[in-house]
Write a protein that binds this DNA or RNA. Structure first.
Lengths: 190, 190
DNA sequence: TCCCTCAAACGAATGCCATTCGATAATAAG
DNA sequence: CTTATTATCGAATGGCATTCGTTTGAGGGA
């Protein structure tokens, strides 16, 4: 059917995940990915249209898992403050600082993309809805001023992008702790 | 000494500003910059160590001016809410959406940099202090829990980075208005 | 006026990489 | 067994940052 060869396709994805994790988006090369997947760089283009497409294919499932796991963690906390802190620490610390640095690689990929590249904001929208839903659950009001939560979720995600972007650079100063507690207290006051 | 070098130096900076504004960081080429400055690409390396260095040299003065102008605008507003709105609209709308798109180009430059590249976070720190100072002035409390303002300033700047990063992509949905008013009301409640 | 030195300038590499091409090999279909 | 399609590969192609080796020309000293 459609799938050329499921095995090779997945070998490429796995190879790419390793390569991106080690080298980030810019320094990773299709040749290295091909070598890891035990095929040729030209053959990679039978399965993917571009380097960007590979990056997105690697990132999406990883990131969705991270978010779903985070949702779990948040739900296990008892108080509003703990829930909010858990959410923000996940998004502004744990996930972007994850070993494999896929967040930074994703940011690199998007930053170097042009408007003509095949990017869809579907994943971003999915994530923002999810966060809005979590926030809504934290305060559990059913009257649903959902738009407010979406706006906050959007800001949280833009900050997440910023954190990921700054991950590349050696940041001598880490203000994330203060930032999180500040934001938690502002949100909790709502 | 050669008076000429100053002239060429500035010709390169001007040329680079034009080139970066038109093409962003990634698509801009040293060759184009050299051509605009009426010199050769190799000669550019007499004045700058790398493409990144040029980008930062172009960005810094432009951005500082934007911030100083914004500080002015904020100071002319009368109420707390108007001041905050002015500040956030500047940082999350006007500056990143500026014609010349230098914000997006700066993000591209940083996102593609490696930790070994000659980046200093001095400008970021300067900006965050400035924003903290502005916030402090808005609420004009002299007791100065300055660290809280710095944390908020940091978050504002990370969001700014996120906005600039997303500028590359055609974003179909613009939630910046809601985001700003939401943030203003959260801050004003402090 | 004539050298001599050294910064400034340049054209031609170098090396790296995403992406494409053209040609085979393998496989499925009839 | 033939034919069409797919997968694979090695060898381009084209673009670009950066480096190299050499040349040029201004300024100071003789």
């Amino acid at each position: 059917m459609w799938v050329k060869s499921q095995i090779v396709y997945e070998a490429i994805l796995t190879a790419a995940e390793g390569e991106f994790a080690e080298n980030g988006y810019v320094k990773a090369t299709i040749n290295n990915i091909a070598r890891r997947a035990e095929t040729s760089s030209s053959n990679v283009y039978v399965y993917f249209q571009s380097k960007l497409e590979i990056a997105l294919a690697v990132y999406e499932p990883w990131f969705k898992n991270q978010i779903l796991a985070l949702e779990q963690s948040v739900s296990q906390k008892r108080t509003v403050e703990r829930k909010l802190t858990c959410l923000l620490e996940g998004l502004w610390k744990s996930i972007p600082r994850d070993e494999n640095r896929l967040t930074a690689m994703h940011i690199q990929a998007l930053a170097t993309a042009t408007p003509r590249d095949p990017y869809s904001s579907e994943l971003l929208r999915w994530t923002e809805s999810k966060i809005a839903e979590i926030l809504s659950g934290v305060f559990d009001k059913d009257e649903d001023p959902h738009n407010d939560y979406l706006a906050v979720a959007h800001m949280i995600m833009l900050t997440f992008d910023g954190v990921g972007m700054r991950q590349n650079l050696r940041q001598p100063l880490d203000r994330s702790g203060q930032m999180i507690s500040q934001m938690v207290s502002m949100l909790a006051r709502s």
